[in-house]
């Protein structure tokens, strides 16, 4: 439970844009939201046309609180996506974007929540989990964590180079990555059992991805004996 944040719409300014994968771009925005959020939370974005027409969407924050005064969003370009195609095709550094947040205290983690921390991500659903990993590395590297990450291909996987580098360099962080269209298995009972073996009984579990992935992963975790009350799920995209 956190104090009610100030959720008025406020302008943020795009300070950097970078490609993440062929379909996902990273946007850094300077905003007051950067001062007070927990990894895993999201922001609402509102775009307004000249005639007043508006569209809103929610995006997970990929960055950890880092004192930079900015947050990072990773936005997947969706076919015909009204807001995502604006970000992919029109948005430029210097543009002002209306934001409100942070939102969503249930799917969030901080050092006080403890560990071991089990993160299970499918595709671009890894974004809020990345925020948790980034935060853990700085704020609580002693907390054991494991990321079970499933993507279609290595090149589709969001921030895979960073995640693999972290798993190599950070003691206490393990990674199981599977590329399901490159010969890797889809998430299954054996994969979950092995993850729980390596990590130990988790104190917190976060699952994020597309609906079928989240359903499968959550069911496997419960069947493997993880208490349902420890598991928090979030559906990503759509």
């Amino acid at each position: 439970m956190t104090e009610a944040p100030d959720l008025r719409w406020r302008e943020g300014v795009i300070t950097a844009i970078a490609p993440v994968t062929a379909r996902v771009k990273s946007f850094r925005l300077r905003t007051k939201i950067a001062d007070a959020y927990r990894p895993g939370q999201h922001v609402d974005v509102r775009l307004t046309a000249e005639d007043g027409y508006r569209a809103q969407r929610s995006y997970s924050i990929a960055s950890a609180p880092d004192g930079s005064g900015t947050i990072e969003l990773m936005i997947e370009g969706l076919e015909g996506g009204e807001v995502s195609s604006f970000f992919h095709e029109i948005a430029e550094v210097g543009d002002a974007i209306e934001l409100r947040g942070p939102i969503g205290g249930s799917f969030s983690w901080g050092p006080a929540d403890g560990g071991p921390l089990l993160l299970v991500g499918g595709g671009s659903g890894v974004v809020p989990l990345l925020a948790m990993l980034r935060h853990r590395a700085v704020a609580a590297p002693e907390i054991p964590a494991l990321l079970l990450y499933s993507a279609r291909t290595r090149s589709d996987a969001v921030a895979l180079a960073e995640i693999e580098a972290r798993a190599g360099a950070e003691p206490g962080l393990s990674l199981t990555f599977t590329a399901t269209r490159e010969g890797g298995r889809r998430i299954d009972a054996a994969m979950v059992a092995e993850a729980l073996d390596r990590l130990g009984q988790p104190a917190r579990v976060f699952v994020c991805g597309a609906t079928p992935f989240v359903r499968t992963a959550a069911t496997l975790l419960v069947e493997a004996g993880v208490a349902p009350g420890l598991i928090r799920t979030e559906r990503f995209g759509g």
């Binding site: 307004t48 046309a49 569209a55 009204e82 604006f86 002002a96």
Partner: peptide, 24 residues
């Protein structure tokens, strides 16, 4: 404030009437 370059994809008027603010 208008967002530079945002046009939006408006739904047909019948749909818009049934959509609360901020919904699609």
């Amino acid at each position: 404030m208008a967002t530079r370059g945002f046009v939006g994809r408006r739904s047909p008027e019948e749909t818009q009437k049934r959509l609360p603010p901020g919904q699609h």
